[in-house]
Each structure stands twice: as C-alpha cells, then as structure tokens.
C-alpha cells in the first residue's frame, strides 16, 4: 500500500514538473492519425478486460468502463 502511494506521488511530481511538456498546435499532426487515438482499440480492450476480469484477481485501472458481472 505504502509503496504504491509513493510511486503515485513520484509520477505525479514527474508529470507536473514537466508543465512545459507538449507541442504547439501545429505540431499535433501525428496525433490526428486514426491509429494514434487513445480509443483506437477500444473494442479489443473491452473484450480483453472482460476476459481478464473473469480470469484474474484484479481488474480495472484503464478506465471506469466495465461494470459488474457474475463471472468473478
């Protein structure tokens, strides 16, 4: 428990420390690509999440999506 909170703090610090990270609006071309969308594999991920949810002891993390099911 303590270790993961520590890790969280370090990572948040890393990200906020880099507030200058990023690109200019006209440098976002790559992110407009269809395959660069964060939900490009949404269907696959939902299917996998459902399988892992029913086969493994922990679940979630990626998104809120999902929900209850009697398979676990």
């Amino acid at each position: 428990m303590r270790t993961d909170l520590k890790l969280l703090i370090i990572l948040v610090a890393l990200l906020s420390g880099c507030a200058n990270l990023g690109v200019k609006p006209w440098e976002r071309g790559q992110f407009a690509r269809e395959d660069m969308q964060l939900d490009a594999d949404e269907m696959d991920m939902a299917i996998e999440d459902h399988i892992y949810f029913s086969k493994e002891g922990s679940s979630g993390g990626r998104t809120l999506a999902g929900g209850g099911c009697g398979c676990n």
Binding site: L8, L11, V12, L15, C18, L21, G22, V23, E27, R28, G29, Q30, F31, L38, G60, G61, R62, T63, L64, G68
Partner: peptide, 28 residues
C-alpha cells in the same frame, strides 16, 4: 447484494510531436 463505487482521476499529457502519456489512479 453487492455494491461497487469506482473513482478515477487521471491526466493525459502530450510529451512531444509523437508521444503522449497517460497516468491514472483508480479507487474501487
């Protein structure tokens, strides 16, 4: 009955022209 409350906070950051990253924390 079974009740579940999920909370989730996160951040998505563009790192450079080609990379982006996401960090999120979820409590259930």
């Amino acid at each position: 009955l079974k009740r579940t409350l999920d909370l989730n906070v996160g951040i998505t950051q563009t790192l450079n022209r080609r990379w982006q990253a996401q960090l999120s924390y979820g409590l259930s």
